[in-house]
Each structure stands twice: as structure tokens, then as C-alpha cells.
Design a protein around this nucleic acid. Structure first.
Length: 223
DNA sequence: ACATTAAATTCGA
DNA sequence: TCGAATTTAATGT
């Protein structure tokens, strides 16, 4: 079971709950570690937890009919995912793959459903979260054909910096260029060139094992 | 795929 | 415990 302080740190919604609700939530959340490259959950299999990245990096992905990987979204510390499958009580619609050693906080379905039904503050958070995701995906559809590697990298990074989804995130990401490639669905050298392009345009600065964002606005709307 | 460089680790005083 | 030497990891082309 997770500690009260750890829950407070991971879950912005926890602060809005009553003491009793928060304690109830805490008792339904456990931590689990996943090693780099491992599958957290697989498409078409059930995984009855709502999950939060405590530490690490992962991607949600699916395979196109031709067998090509399509990355839906990358997630890092503070991001919650899987509420859709838990609410519908159905198998996952995509895979979650750990891109580095990662620990997740997992809330079991009964706890989730009870909070969802009984706590207005919790439901409010969920609406906010789902709405923000929807906006993100609508942005993707809107720019459907722009699939240049640079644009994909720009959008992949921007999604990790979404203030609504990651309240604690700053302007800096601890992420290697190889991981950027995995998130954007491009090779490492291509990610390197894309990052260089974005740097030349003044959108970000590159460091070893990290990226500093200078212009999130333009990164989000790249292309 | 290879060359370069930064960072992390080991080793010896 | 400090710093040099070595190894490993990330980056650039």
C-alpha cells in the first residue's frame, strides 16, 4: 500500500478529497515496478487498474493493420492512464510498454469505481483529465497529414509538457534522444536530426540526457 | 555504423 | 576521501 505522502505527491485530486475518501483511496493503491522494455499491459487483455507513473517513462501504443507500431502517447512521472478501460470494464485497447525502468502506482477497480461514483471531486478530476486527452488527440487528427519526423518529435515532447496532465512539470525533461525516438516512433538518428532542427528554430535547447523547452506554444503547434 | 564526448565508476594513494 | 584513469552511455554525423 502506498504512503499518504506518496499519494499526495502523485495525485493532484487527492488534495480535493475528504480525509475519509483520501484514506480509502490510499488503501486501494499499490506500487509496482516494471523493467525497461517490459509490457505493463497488452492490447485485448484485461488489466483492472487505473495507473499513474510514479517514476520512469512509458508509451501507449498499438499496431496498425500492416503491423507498424503507432505510438498514441508517451507518459512520464505524474501521468495517469487507463481510466477508459477501467470505467468500461473491458480489455485494454492498446499496449503500455516501459521505455525505461518504471514504477507505477496502481489503483484497483473497486476503489476507482467507488470514488468515481461517490466523490464529486474525484469525478471532476476525471472529466478534466479526459477532456485534456481529447483535446490532445483532436490536435493530432487536425494535423493528420503532417507526419514529418520533426513534427512528430515536437508533438511527442509537447504532450509530455502538458500542464493540465502534469501539474508538476517544469520546462525541462530528463529524456535521452533514444527515448525521444521511441516516443515519436522514429529512429534515434532521426530523432537527433529532428531535435537539432527544433533547436535551430529556437524551440528548445539540448543537453546530455535532457531537453530544455523554450517555446512550448510553438512546439505544440508545430507543422 | 562509427567517431566523439560527457558522465559515471573504479582504483590507488 | 580525493582525483586520475577507465569504462559506459549518449550524442553527432
Amino acid at each position: 500500500m502506498i504512503s499518504a505522502s506518496a499519494l499526495r505527491q502523485l495525485a493532484p485530486w487527492a488534495a480535493q478529497l475528504s480525509d475519509a475518501e483520501r484514506e480509502y483511496a490510499r488503501q486501494g493503491v499499490t506500487l509496482r515496478a516494471f523493467s525497461q522494455g517490459s509490457f505493463i499491459c497488452c492490447q485485448n487483455q484485461s488489466f483492472n487498474f487505473w495507473a499513474c507513473v510514479s517514476d520512469g517513462l512509458l508509451k501507449l501504443r498499438t499496431l496498425s493493420p500492416e503491423g507498424k507500431e503507432v505510438v498514441l502517447v508517451g507518459m512520464h512521472a505524474g501521468g495517469w492512464f487507463g481510466e477508459g478501460s477501467v470505467i468500461r470494464n473491458e480489455p485494454r485497447r492498446y499496449d503500455a510498454v516501459a521505455l525505461r525502468d518504471t514504477t507505477l502506482a496502481l489503483m484497483d477497480r473497486p476503489t476507482f469505481m467507488r470514488l468515481f461514483e461517490d466523490s464529486p471531486a474525484f469525478s471532476h478530476f476525471l472529466v478534466h483529465q479526459i477532456n485534456e486527452r481529447l483535446a490532445q488527440f483532436m490536435g493530432l487528427v487536425e494535423h493528420d497529414r503532417m507526419l514529418s519526423p520533426t513534427a512528430r518529435v515536437a508533438r511527442g515532447l509537447a504532450s509530455l509538457l502538458n500542464q493540465a496532465l502534469y501539474p508538476e512539470v517544469g520546462r525541462e525533461l530528463d529524456i535521452t534522444q533514444e527515448e525521444v525516438g521511441l516516443l515519436a516512433g522514429v529512429s534515434r538518428p532521426v530523432a537527433n536530426q529532428a531535435l537539432k532542427t527544433l533547436h535551430n528554430e529556437g524551440l528548445l535547447a539540448l543537453g546530455r540526457g535532457g531537453i530544455a523547452i523554450h517555446d512550448l506554444e510553438r512546439l505544440q503547434n508545430y507543422g
